[in-house]
């Protein structure tokens, strides 16, 4: 089985978000970039398939040279090879189209992406990719077993979960649950040394439309101070929620 894990390079979850150039760009100043958390769960599940079922694991990202430390980290965790499509990922369809090209050229059976990138929260790249490639697709995937050509996937639904049965080739949009937090791996020295010798292939993008374009960004309005209610006046809170906030 050949697996491709799609990795988006995102600001660390603790990052402060600012915009620059007249609020048209995300300000990367002082921001630490990491593997998108949803993709890290997927990568870790892929490592399980590698170790238990002999799968080959490649990782791919669409991004400029500045994303290389993030994909090197994926190699240090244990992926066999990496592909970087040398283009700015500004639109979900554009990114999906690039990754679909990587999939076609590499002949992958299983493509693991994340439920969403935590930066632009598009939640669309895996679904678009699957449709372009005419492959099966499972979103918000929280469990995946592969047996030959058959796949059993668990997906999160509103208020519970659903078990699905499908076949390879398959694309998933994964999240926590694919593996647990405690299964995540921190690259060790040996992994980091090995990663330096692994292939990181840079390919140029194919032409693709960009059906959406971010024109401008803004930050949420500053919040007023919290209204504190004394612990011995809980009734006062009920009053505020009813008369002022009008939410009960």
């Amino acid at each position: 089985m050949k697996i491709l894990v799609c990795i988006s390079n995102v600001p660390d979850t603790t990052s402060k978000i600012n915009f620059t150039e007249g609020d048209t760009k995300f300000d990367t100043n002082g921001v630490q970039f990491v593997i998108n958390p949803n993709d890290e769960f997927g990568l870790t599940r892929a490592m399980w398939f590698k170790e238990k079922q002999g799968a080959t694991v490649h990782v791919a990202t669409v991004g400029g040279p500045q994303t290389e430390p993030t994909i090197r980290k994926a190699l240090a965790i244990g992926a066999d090879e990496a592909i970087r499509v040398n283009a700015e990922p500004t639109d979900g369809f554009f990114v999906a189209r690039q990754l679909a090209e990587v999939v076609k050229n590499g002949g992958y059976d299983l493509i693991i992406g994340g439920r969403e990138s935590i930066d632009y929260n598009g939640g669309m790249v895996p679904g678009i990719m699957a449709t372009l490639l005419d492959m099966n697709f499972v979103n918000t995937c929280i469990g995946l077993e592969i047996d030959g050509n058959n796949a059993t996937a668990m997906r999160e639904i509103d208020g519970g979960k659903e078990k699905l049965s499908t076949t390879l080739p398959l694309v998933i949009g994964g999240q926590k649950g694919l593996v647990e937090e405690s299964d995540l791996r921190i690259p060790n020295m040996r992994g980091i040394m090995m990663a330096r010798k692994k292939a990181l292939n840079v390919v140029e993008p194919v032409d693709a439309p960009m059906p959406t374009q971010d024109q401008k960004f803004e930050k949420p309005a500053a919040k007023g101070p919290v209204k504190l209610v004394e612990a011995d006046n809980v009734g006062g809170l009920v009053d505020l929620l009813h008369n002022e906030a009008k939410v009960i």
Partner: peptide, 20 residues
């Protein structure tokens, strides 16, 4: 056609044009 959406996990908003 421009819509306002949340981005950066509610830490920002984007004004996004749909050109398709």
């Amino acid at each position: 056609f421009v819509v306002k959406r949340t981005a950066f996990s509610n830490k920002g908003f984007a004004h996004t044009e749909i050109t398709a």
